[in-house]
Structure formats: C-alpha cells, structure tokens
C-alpha cells in the first residue's frame, strides 16, 4: 500500500469521499467505510491511538444527529412507538448514514493528509497538471489541521500564562476566541503569501523542463487499486 503512486492514493481518497456524498444505501456506505478503514490500516498500520481518539471525539456528534433524526423524522416504517410518539426507519437510517458518511470522509482525509507536497507534485505531474495546482491542493488540504494546531497553540499560550479559559465569564471567552480567530486568519493569509513567494523563488513554473531526483511511475499495485475502484463502482450501479 505504501508503494502506491500518490495519484492512486488521491483517486482512492476521492472515490471514498464521493461515495460518502453520493451513495444512499446504508449497506454500500458500510462497505465504503470498511474499505476506507482497510486502506488506512494498510497505509498507517494498526495504531488505535491515531484514529480511535478522533473517532471517539466524533461520537457525541453522531449520537446527537441520530437522536435529532430519530426524534423529528417521521418517514418510513414505524420501528418503535408508544402513544403519540414513534421512531421511524427513515430517521434512524438518516442518523446512521450521517455517522457513516462522516467516518468515510475522516478516513479519506487521513489518506490525503499523509501525502506531502512532493507526493502532490508527483501526482499532478503524472496527469500533466501544473505544479501550482498541486501546491494549491496540498495547501488547502493542510489548512484545517494547521488551523487546529494553531488553536491548540493559542489555548496552550493561555494556560502557560495562568489563564484558565473555563473560569472566564462568557463575554471574556468570546473576546479571547475572537482574538484567536482573527490571528488565525491573519496568520493564514501571511503564511500563504510567504509560501507563494517561496514557491516562486524556487523557480516553480507551470511549463518547461524540470529537474527531478526520482520519478515515481505507475506499477501493478496502482492498476490493482484502480481496477478495484472501477469494479466496486460498477457493482454499485449494477446492484
């Protein structure tokens, strides 16, 4: 798995995330989740610490969506009812589907996050797309984790100075969060302009010959992965 060409890995991630968005049937969503999970397992190895903790963190969100769907969606067949109130199949399915979609997107994002700029460059070069595009995609994909790190850093800054956010009145908390988000935005803008300048200074251009140390090419593993995607897509449309 680790020897897959980055383009194949991007295709896999895109395929999984498309499945998360477009597939309606629960069993197919379940299969897509299983495959996305297996890909993560093959790629990162079994490390519960890295994926289990975020999944557990998402649990309250899953459960609240499931609860809201079960409480308010009154379509499909009656699963359980007492008096005036009933839980319907469409509500339950909607809640479960939301959880599955979110998990698939999470595992797809993890695959993409593992790729560094060199990988995006190699992937985009393989399909004759300019380096700038690879850079932009790479940059965009890493924005969210970067923003998360910045927020953690700011919270740590508060703690190291002796400020406990939980103890502050809500008005003060809002003020601090406003400051954090403003600095986050400013950092993001300045960081992107610095990165763009760095890119230009290193002579990245959309055309012309470039020097490469190592050219990664497609192998049988990539063909297998792509065939796998095609087979499952075909199976989805047929069945």
């Amino acid at each position: 798995m680790k020897k897959l060409h980055p383009l194949s890995l991007i295709f896999l991630a895109l395929w999984f995330s498309s499945a998360a968005v477009f597939v309606l049937r629960l069993e197919w969503l379940g299969i897509a989740l299983l495959l996305a999970f297996l890909c993560n397992l093959l790629y990162f190895g079994f490390s519960g610490k890295t994926w289990l903790r975020p999944v557990v963190r998402m649990l309250p969100l899953f459960l609240s969506v499931l609860l809201i769907q079960a409480l308010f969606v009154k379509k499909g067949s009656l699963v359980w009812g007492r008096g005036w109130y009933g839980i319907y199949s469409a509500g339950l399915q909607g809640g479960v589907a939301f959880g599955l979609r979110l998990l698939i997107l999470f595992f797809s994002a993890r695959l993409l996050l593992k790729l560094d700029y060199e990988d995006f460059d190699a992937a985009f070069h393989a399909v004759q797309l300019p380096e700038e595009l690879g850079f932009m995609v790479f940059y965009t994909i890493h924005v969210l984790p970067w923003a998360g790190d910045r927020i953690s850093h700011n919270r740590q800054l508060l703690r190291l100075r002796g400020v406990e956010l939980r103890e502050l009145p809500w008005r003060q908390k809002l003020r601090i969060y406003q400051r954090i988000s403003l600095s986050l935005l400013a950092d993001l803008l300045s960081r992107s302009s610095v990165q763009a300048i760095a890119l230009e200074l290193r002579g990245f251009r959309s055309g012309g010959q470039r020097t490469r140390l190592h050219k990664r090419s497609f192998s049988w593993r990539d063909a297998l992965a792509l065939a796998f995607i095609a087979a499952f897509t075909a199976a989805f449309f047929i069945f």
């Binding site: 703690r159 190291l160 100075r161 002796g162 400051r179 403003l182």
Partner: peptide, 26 residues
C-alpha cells in the same frame, strides 16, 4: 493546571509563537 503556572513567565525561542492575538495590545 493553569493557575499553577502563575509563578512562571515563559517566553519561547520564537517571539511570534510566544505572542497572543493579532497586535501587541492583544
């Protein structure tokens, strides 16, 4: 906990990383 840090003034190697907010007033 946060209040146990009140005996220390720490400033890291990167000045920007040690500063909070958008401007010095923050």
């Amino acid at each position: 906990s946060a209040d146990q840090y009140r005996g220390v003034f720490y400033s890291g190697q990167s000045a920007r990383e040690s500063l909070f907010g958008l401007v010095p007033r923050h």
